[in-house]
Simulated assay, not measured.
Amino acid sequence: MKVVVAHNRYREAIPSGENVIVDTEIAQLTAAGVEVLPFQRASDSIGDLPASQKLLLPVSPVFGRAAQRDLAELLRREKPDLVHLHNPYPLLSPWVVRTAHAHGVPVIQTVHNYRQVCSSGLYFRDGHNCTDCRGKALGWPAIQHKCYRGSAAQSALMATTLAVHRPTWKSVDRYIALTGRIAAHLRDYGIPGERIAIKPNGLPDPGEPAPLGEGFLYAARLSPEKGLALLLDAWRQHPDGSLGPLRIAGDGELRPLAERAAAERTDVTYLGALDRAGMEAARRDAAVIVAVPTWNDVLPTVILEAMAAGRPVLGTDVGGIPYLLGLGETPTPAGWAVRPEVATLAAALPIARVDAAQFAPAARDRYLRAFHPDVVTGQLLDIYAGLTAGHDAAPK
């Protein structure tokens, strides 16, 4: 089988679980004998584009002329069985779906967020969950609130792109929803249930877990929806040193909060942005991983990485986190999920500290049963086979 994997990579300066997942999936498919043809663009490359292409950047989310030309050439040359799309913005554009169909190639998209409807993709703005654009022909609220990159002009462009490409998204041959919640989002958007498959992300097995370290690790993009302020407010409810160390890894607009907390308390350390080796070391040093987003985070990669490493997770009960941790599915879940409230999280911190060793084996077991490559790659290959078996290769 020959598969084009299409993805617009997020900026490397901002940690992206989606980039990690795409890289991992390519490696897993290749190991399974699939011929993978990566078709990727990187947002980091925008500054190096020729002047002629920079002039077209404002409309690239709608059409992406250069990407369509290159994809068409790839499809003619390689004649793949399917195109598997992840993130199309800004340089690929949803038009890649139409380009693939014009060449008789079916398209699968993995849905990592809510961007069929929401300009930011998060269903979150101004510190709270928001679905104001759901059901609207044009997302005027996104323009009013500058939801895309803090710009009314760019928000208008993204809202227009979503409106223009509603028929494009409706034509995708198969969607992969990471969770049941995302499947419900797609059905609400108008996608028939028979065109939606539910398959979570997976990660390579790092091997047998190291013994638990000490304290807590928070690793995320330091932006409001990721819950850093919530965690620090809850942490301050306890005397300095009473919970062991809290290490914070990541970068972003809320970096001053992390730096201020580290200056105020001896039990808080700000590690800054870490590379992969640095993150692995930070996980080994911790007993519990904290993942406390306040938005409906779909399937946080940091939690997958924690469970693979045998670290239980203290999370919030939003988005896909309860599913990730196996709450309600297994006798002993991979951690704890609490309401995204200061008092509730503050009460859970000492419980997680005391019970970490009890929950660690369950975290590793949850990974092995649900998110190991042997499990999720098999599921993905079944989805591919189910689509290509009945596909008419005539151009649409």
Rank of each mutant, 00 (worst) to 15 (best):
I143C: 05
R283C: 06
N19K: 04
A258V: 11
H84C: 08
V375Y: 02
S120F: 05
T388K: 12
A262S: 13
V164H: 02
S60D: 13
E341Q: 12
Q28G: 07
L37C: 10
Y367D: 01
A156G: 14
P312I: 00
T316Q: 08
H145D: 12
P94H: 09
A184W: 04
M307R: 00
A287Q: 05
T332H: 05
L387A: 12
T344P: 00
A197P: 00
P90W: 09
T168H: 02
W235A: 03
D275C: 13
E253V: 14
G315T: 04
G319D: 10
A142W: 01
G310P: 01
I196A: 03
I108K: 00
H372Q: 06
L271S: 11
A363T: 00
E253L: 10
V290F: 13
G320N: 07
A156V: 03
W336A: 07
V290E: 07
G139Y: 00
R134S: 14
G315L: 08
K146R: 15
A282C: 12
I196M: 08
T266Q: 15
T161W: 01
T377L: 08
E12G: 00
I46M: 00
G121N: 07
M279S: 10
L57C: 09
E12F: 04
A142K: 00
T99V: 15
P58Q: 11
R255W: 03
E341D: 13
L74W: 03
K136T: 14
P106E: 06
L271G: 11
E214S: 12
A153P: 08
S43T: 07
A273R: 13
L271M: 11
C130M: 07
L37P: 00
I191L: 09
K54E: 03
Q53S: 10
P94C: 05
L304R: 05
V22S: 01
A210Q: 11
L232H: 13
